[in-house]
Amino acid sequence: MTAAGKAEKRTLLQPHKRTGNPIVPYLFVAPHLLFFMVFVGYPFFYGLYISFFQYDFLRPDATNFVFLENYAKLFTPDSVQFPVFWNALGNTVEFVFLSVPPLIIIPLILAVLLNTKVPGRNFFRGIYFAPWVLSAAVVGLLGFWMFQSQGGLLNYYLIQMGIEAPRWLSSMPWAWVSILLITIWWTVGFNMIIILAALQDIPAHLYESAAIDGANSWRQFVSITIPLLRPVMVFVTVITIIASFNLFAQPFFMTGGGPAQASGGGATEPVMLRIYREGFERNQLGTAASMSFLVATIMILFSYTNFRLFRTRE
């Protein structure tokens, strides 16, 4: 039993003494691990595998190993994929920068307001959260009917007020504005609820003692609320960035990725929509898989940098 002797010395690695069958922890993680392997792990590696092939699951005879050629196409300026892929990736990054600040700041303001003892606050909490339960397709279609130019709700009222309405869905930058507005309306409630829960965890005595010390409410917000919300805000920021990176349904239903650009692609076509079109409309699953992996790599780097940035400041 020399191994056991060694283990006793290395208390850092083994803070608790384990008893019972050592397989037990693995049995505990097994149910999730199984689903993870079937629905995430296997598709992930299979996707990586087909990104090295000219691939069509219905034409096994035409499935050729091309190694990095699918990735090379994404970096060759005169390939079919180059202009449309980078245009779409640029659009998605643009959307992330446009959407994340309002999707953090507006829920923060709403959460702080709804954390005070205003009459009917549960009603307002419900109202702001309600759109989040809608499916992406419903939100996209609602967006189209709100913003479309011939009798759309928004233009109808703008014209009644004598304001000349822009072509929300078919001109820039209004197409982004429409998509952004509908996204904020749709998802603001989720971030709000998370921030609200964190606000309720801040002990009331901190505010009381600050008030005794003469701090006004703005000073209390900056010196107590913001620092204590920090871990939750990091979490909210990261999940919002990921959610915005995955933009698909709103442009799919509202603009179809348009307005079209003569140079290729659409001005609001997100990268997820481009991958879908490459894979399932053009049946080019190999290049679509390579696009997915490039985007996944960028997202992983993005999230990693985020956590690093916030961690070093603590």
Binding site: D78, S79, V80, P83, S170, S171, M172, G258, P259, A260, Q261, A262, S263, G264, G265, G266
Partner: peptide, 29 residues
């Protein structure tokens, strides 16, 4: 689709150039 749509939307104005460019990309496809 993209060329005709941008010409009709006014984001492209040179008809011949837009059609030529679309044809070149279609030929690659």
């Amino acid at each position: 689709d993209e060329a005709v749509s941008s010409l009709m939307a006014g984001t492209a104005t040179d008809i011949q150039a837009a059609l030529d460019d679309a044809a070149a990309r279609a030929n690659q496809i």
